[in-house]
Amino acid sequence: MPTLTTSSPFLSAGPGVPGIMRQVLAALVPGAAVLVWQFGAGVLVNLALCTVAALAAEAATLRARGRPLTPFLTDGSALVSAALLGLALPPLAPWWLPVLGTVFAIVVAKQLYGGIGYNPFNPAMAGYAMLLIAFPLEMSRWPAPVGIAGQSFGLLEALRFSLTGGLPPGLDIDAVSMATALDLARTELARGRTLQEFMGAAAVFGPIGGRGTELVNGAFLAGGLWMLLRRTITWQVPAAMLAGLALPAALIWATDPQHHLGPLFHLFSGATMLGAFFIATDPVTAATTPLGRLIYGAGCGVITYAIRTWGGYPDGIAFAVLLMNMAVPTIDHFTRPRIFGRSGRRSP
């Protein structure tokens, strides 16, 4: 094997990018498992469709660009994007929703910018946002969590529904789907009702957050903490994002507890933990300096809160992340650390 480098250092830390991607996928497993348990096998169908679509789209685009398949196809980054999108999409989605979203994410948001490392926008979130804007109905069709529905789809039923839209006899779509906790809370609060009025009445609210979703968030939190221990990700983005979400929520909730969701609810509903630990921490599209990461994370959290509370969508993580992606070059520029031996940031 020819020696590939002619300069020091001649040592290196380890397996590199594929290793990092493997750690992220491993950390997603607990949350994915709880998601499947609570919301049915549709999650697995989505994951499968996203994975196949991602690998196919990446292979096709790499060939069209004249690039080699290894190492780009085998570095695991397409798998991670597919997994994140597959976990974020509603389990009752028709098959073309995950496929379209994934193809958009890989081809447009990633490969057309130059492939891994060159994309300014988080590919999974770009795909999600495109689907949300183009297909709002299909994107809001979540099933009832298993604690309420009493039965959840098996794998074959989920596959059949995804590919054909057909449900088991005796069920129709309104019977199996249910508004998410955030969705219901938004419509009820918009009608001027207080939390006390509607929260006890609707089964979709659990003790901390949305029923089922709170467990999913807990599992993603566990996976995220494991990644912190393994040093796969750094603490700045998740901590700042959770703080950016919880602090405004706490302040505004304190002024009017009955008309606003509290900070704990925000932290354990929707895709908060998935967003904070897995989506916003995407290294390619996040800020790179330590202070920059705090600002970036905080921005993601605050914008998520703003969209959830005053915006037009029940969950705002995708848009928050994409908006902060746009701000990253500026954030990086103004948060450069002081170089050793220099008195100011720029002066020698």
Binding site: T3, T5, S77, I116, P283, T288
Partner: peptide
Amino acid sequence: DYAAVPCIR
């Protein structure tokens, strides 16, 4: 020996 791949920032 490793070949270099793009920077993932």
